[in-house]
C-alpha cells in the first residue's frame, strides 16, 4: 500500500491526530496460518459447521528440503507414471492435480507431474482417487479405454526456457570463477 510517496504521507500524518493510524486489529477473526478441517455435526435439530485446526498428517514422514530449489528437484528422482505412491501426494481426494501454489514445485516439475498424474489415471492405476460417479473398474470403460495402456515418459515435453535458465546460470558461475582466478 505504502510504496513510494511514504515521506509525503508521514508529513501529512504529523498534522492529523495519531488515533487514526491504529492498525485495525479486529479484521482477522481467526488465526489465518494453520491447517484446517471442516466438521459438520448434527446436534439435535441443529447443524453445526466449524473449522477445526489439525496437525498435518504428513508431518512425521516428510523429507526435509533445505536447498534453494523445489522439493522434487532437490531429490533428483526419475519419477515414472507407475510410481503411484509418489503421484498420489500431489492430488486431491477426487484425483485432480493440486495447483502450483499448494504443491510448491517449480514450473517444469509441476507440468511434468500433472502429465504423469493424467497418465496414471488413463492407465487405471489411481482408480481409488476418483470421483464417486466415475468408472473405477477400467474394464467397464468405453471403446479403447477398457484395454491396458502404458506410457512412455520421454514423450513429455520439457520446455526450453527451463534449460535456458540453467545454461545462463552455468555461464554466470564460470565467469565468476574466472574473475576470482584473475584476482
Amino acid at each position: 500500500m505504502f510504496k513510494i510517496p511514504l515521506s509525503g504521507i508521514l508529513l501529512g500524518a504529523s498534522k492529523v491526530p495519531t488515533k487514526l493510524f491504529v492498525p485495525s486489529i479486529g479484521l482477522h477473526v481467526s488465526a489465518p496460518m494453520k491447517l484446517k478441517e471442516i466438521h459438520a455435526n448434527k446436534v439435535g435439530g441443529k447443524l453445526i459447521i466449524e473449522g477445526a485446526f489439525v496437525p498435518s498428517p504428513r508431518k512425521d514422514h516428510l523429507i526435509p528440503n533445505n536447498s534453494e530449489c523445489c522439493s522434487l528437484c532437490n531429490l533428483g528422482l526419475n519419477v515414472k507414471h507407475t510410481d503411484v505412491l509418489i503421484l498420489s501426494q500431489f492430488v486431491r481426494p477426487d484425483g485432480c492435480m493440486m495447483p502450483q501454489r499448494i504443491t510448491g514445485l517449480c514450473k517444469t516439475q509441476q507440468k511434468r507431474m500433472s502429465k504423469l498424474v493424467s497418465m496414471a489415471h488413463k492407465a487405471g492405476l489411481m482408480c481409488s482417487l476418483a470421483p464417486a460417479n466415475s468408472k473405477k473398474d477400467t474394464t467397464k470403460r468405453k471403446l479403447w479405454k477398457k484395454y491396458n495402456t502404458y506410457f512412455d515418459e520421454s514423450t513429455i515435453k520439457v520446455y526450453e526456457s527451463h534449460f535456458k535458465k540453467i545454461k545462463e546460470n552455468v555461464i554466470l558461475d564460470y565467469v565468476k570463477s574466472r574473475n576470482q582466478e584473475i584476482n
Binding site: 496460518m33 484446517k36 471442516i38 498428517p57 504428513r58 514422514h61 503411484v84 501454489r101 487405471g124
Partner: peptide, 29 residues
C-alpha cells in the same frame, strides 16, 4: 504395474512424503 488400491492404507501413510500441505490449507474429508 501396481495400482494404488493394491497398497494398504498404512503403507500409503508411511511412505516418505515429498511435499507438505501449506499452512492455510483446508483438508477435505
Amino acid at each position: 504395474p501396481k495400482t494404488l488400491g493394491s497398497y494398504s492404507k498404512e503403507e500409503i501413510e508411511k511412505y516418505p512424503k515429498i511435499i507438505d500441505y501449506p499452512e492455510d490449507f483446508i483438508l477435505s474429508k
